[in-house]
Amino acid sequence: MEGLTLSIRLDGGERRYTPGAFVGGGVVVRHFEAWQCKYMDVTLGWRTEGRGDEDCQAAVGVRLAGGGEEMSPQNERKFRLKVPQMPWTYHGVLIKIHWVVGVYARGMRGKEVSEEIPIVIHPNPAGIQLPTASL
């Protein structure tokens, strides 16, 4: 959907979480005019990277808006998601497991717009390198 921009703001800004903790924050939505939202989902998802074919899954998620809801040109929707127990962020030799907080939105017309922020999910999150680039 042209002109629609999404940005994710995470509470604390640490981007490192232990399993069972909560990821909270807000999604800032900007558009040059009021628009009708088919869906706007925020998810915690993981995907593999490495030698094997990619596996990915949205482990948890919540719908922030949808069903043709009228959206103002600029607003912020808050969310809070419980971090799953598994899989942990993993940087192996053949396999890497990355987690992202992602927001995916679509108007009644046009394509899906998305924004993702890489995060770390691990019992010892300080010991895991945080990805800097978008995955």
């Binding site: 998810t43 419980k82 995916y104």
Partner: peptide, 19 residues
């Protein structure tokens, strides 16, 4: 078209298909 089916809370590890 309609987005993925969303789950509010992931299953515990012993019920998770990834284990």
């Amino acid at each position: 078209r309609g987005g993925v089916a969303l789950v509010a809370e992931a299953p515990p590890w012993d019920a998770n298909p990834l284990f």
